[in-house]
């Protein structure tokens, strides 16, 4: 059983804007019978203001696919094309309260249909199928391109192959592309890290430094300390000298100094800058 929010159930049971707009200004289609879900979105656009005046959908799929489609039509109505094009799958999921992780691809389908509908409008109204670039298809079972995976990884901060499957379906059938997905993840997440390091720690403003240290604490350090029932917080930062307070089981632990120096300081040095020093606050 899925833990659907009341909002998901409401939009599933009472879907808004079902149907197809006659002589639509834009028609976006995504998915197929084979995939198990599909969405056809039609929009009516005011040519002067580029405001989406009406939107309707037809969906083949599960409760969350229907709810995501219904919510999407509600969200785009009244928005300009420019505003609507900024809607992400996370916005759709947030508007529904939340979606189970395994169902996030339903919200991605909404985002893709909208993208196709807007392109359709720009191209004179001829229906546009959301297409993956054929030469860069990673998952052949669900026809998912490298571009789509990169977009999902960036937008949703995906970390594992399983995450990518939940959001894009890629890798969810035969699984042969899982190694390729991992490579894309490594590339994208590696690039994200590289971008952050490009500007050296010394050049960052004090706020940027605090954020950078906090990020490493959250992602690399606290999860490990949490396993022993402890944690750590950033107290002060001056130049490259970081003051950390150990809390929980870590405070008063006889290994506190080793934790500070051998683990926290070393990790910060590896991730940010070799000259960082860590002292107990």
């Amino acid at each position: 059983m899925w833990d659907y929010t009341d909002k998901v159930m409401d939009h599933f049971k009472n879907p808004r804007n079902v149907g197809a707009i006659e002589n639509a200004d834009g028609t976006g289609q995504v998915g197929s019978l084979i995939c198990g879900d599909a969405l056809r979105l039609t929009i009516k656009v005011n040519k002067e203001t580029e405001i989406i005046e009406d939107a309707k959908f037809e969906t083949f799929g599960c409760a969350s696919a229907i709810a995501s489609s219904s919510m999407l039509t509600e969200m785009v109505k009244g928005k300009t094309l420019e505003e609507a094009s900024k809607i992400t799958n996370q916005d759709i999921a947030d508007a529904l309260g939340s979606l189970p992780a395994e169902k996030m691809h339903c919200s991605v389908m909404g985002m893709e249909a909208l993208d196709a509908a807007i392109r359709s409008y720009r191209q004179g109204g001829k229906p546009v199928e959301f297409e993956q670039q054929e030469e860069k298809i990673v998952c052949r079972c669900f026809n998912v391109s490298e571009e789509a995976i990169i977009k999902a990884v960036r937008l949703n901060h995906l970390k594992t192959v399983e995450d990518v499957t939940h959001f894009t379906k890629a890798g969810g059938a035969c699984g042969r592309c899982k190694a390729d997905i991992q490579k894309i993840l490594d590339k994208v997440n590696g690039m994200v890290q590289a971008a952050a390091v490009q500007k050296s720690f010394n050049e960052l403003t004090i706020v940027e430094k605090i954020k950078a240290v906090e990020k490493v604490l959250e992602e690399e350090i606290r999860p490990k300390l949490n396993m022993d029932g402890g944690s750590a917080e950033l107290v002060d930062l001056s130049g490259n000298a970081v003051k950390i307070r150990l809390i929980g089981m870590c405070s008063g632990c006889i290994n506190a100094q080793a934790t500070l120096k051998n683990f926290i300081e070393k990790t910060l040095q590896e991730k940010l800058d070799k000259s960082i020093t860590v002292e107990q606050a």
């Binding site: 198990g36 879900d37 799929g61 409760a63 696919a65 229907i66 499957t165 379906k169 969810g172």
Partner: peptide
């Protein structure tokens, strides 16, 4: 149409059945 959607509506009438659809199992096929 898709099996999970049918099951969710049947559930309103306390009718319990199951589906071979992808969406009910959490798998994608």
């Amino acid at each position: 149409i898709e099996g999970e959607s049918i099951l969710m509506y049947l559930n309103d009438f306390h009718i319990c059945a199951s589906s071979g659809s992808a969406c009910t199992s959490g798998s994608l096929e």
